[in-house]
Design a protein around this nucleic acid. Sequence first.
DNA 1: TCTGGGGTCCTAGGACCC
DNA 2: TCTGGGGTCCTAGGACCC
Length: 414
Amino acid sequence: MPDQATILHADLDSFYASVEQLLDPSLRGKAMAVGGGVVLAASYEAKAFGVRGGMSGRKARELCPHLIFVRGHFDQYQRLGDAAIDVMRDFTPVVERISIDEAFADVAGCTHLFGTPEEVARIIRRRVRDELGLPISVGVARTKHLAKVASQVAKPDGLVVVPAGTEMEFLHDLPVGLMWGVGPVTEGKLKDEGILTIGQLAATPGKSLRGLLGDAVGDKLSDLARDRDTRSVQTRHSARSAGAQSALGRQPATEAVFKPTLRHLADRVTARLRAKSLAGRTITVRIRFADMRSITRSVTLDAPISATVMVAEIAEDLVRTALKEHPRETVISLLGVSVSHIGAQPHIQLELPLGLIDEKHRPGTRQGIARWSADRAMDKARTRFGREAIGYAIAQLQPRSSVPDAFRELAEKF
DNA sequence: TCTGGGGTCCTAGGACCC
DNA sequence: TCTGGGGTCCTAGGACCC
């Protein structure tokens, strides 16, 4: 365990909204949001009215009648997010990006070149402001968790350093909701026990927390509240699953609806897997009904697959079976397809999966290989001519979704 | 308050194995 | 006839994060 505060967590403030205010000066200082039906990001001026990401556009307008909505400039988010992370990489290669607008860095190895971690953090903030025109908050601490909490405390547009040795003091009066891993449900359970601050959490016996929250969450929160975070900054990590989903509004739960939708979703997911030479053994579908309750159904094969039609047909079987189990549900509002148990795409798929797949679709058969080859050819054509240039005819019938494709592309970048 | 899309990890019960 | 114990895998659901 390092004994110096060398971990930085940097987080671009209200990122999408800040970019829009950068691109269009007339938006600066105003309550504005990116999105329409749903708020994807809100400016600080809008947040002052209670507008939050994920909120419906209608609710946002109720809270803030003069709210300005703008369509996103998604290519710019990608470019500016990359540029901000690259500023951190100018100091150290030990950078762990955790989203489009957020990253950890460990500067332990570069302080002899650039000064103390606090000085590095100041330079990063200044450069992102000067070179990109964006506000970024930074936390500096001995552990990832502390650095992350510190950057939240630093917002907006601030810097908070937690010197080594002062961690418990820093955490003591902060609300438990600031901890990584405490959401509304956990916060509610803790509140019911009278535990409101991280100091109170640290004083609660681990055994009680395990009983209240389950073994894993109880142990994790015990450790974090007592500043026992041993995670290091990871520069690489491999994906464990890949998925796609689509909200449908209100659609009848019929084959005519779910078949083309699943084909489209399977195509999106498997194209991404094939682009990284990956394949997965477990196919999971999610169905959300009219009342927003959702169910999942999954099947695990003996061998990994990545062919569009194979994933699509398995997904169709799972949905068909699940809908038969819920005959009273006649309306669906969302479908999702996800592939997990991901590993490298084997060159020749010899293992035969059991379960729902009938013989002609097994990966190791000639048909399976032919389909995989056809998908690879299609992927190449798309790379040259664009995503919309080619696709399974049935998947092309999909109506345009409420979310711009550019945002989907962005969300895929992990 | 009828609410988008991409992920990660954990839990609990059952099947199965030694 | 109240009948072990440990481990792994699978499935379905849920909490959480950005």
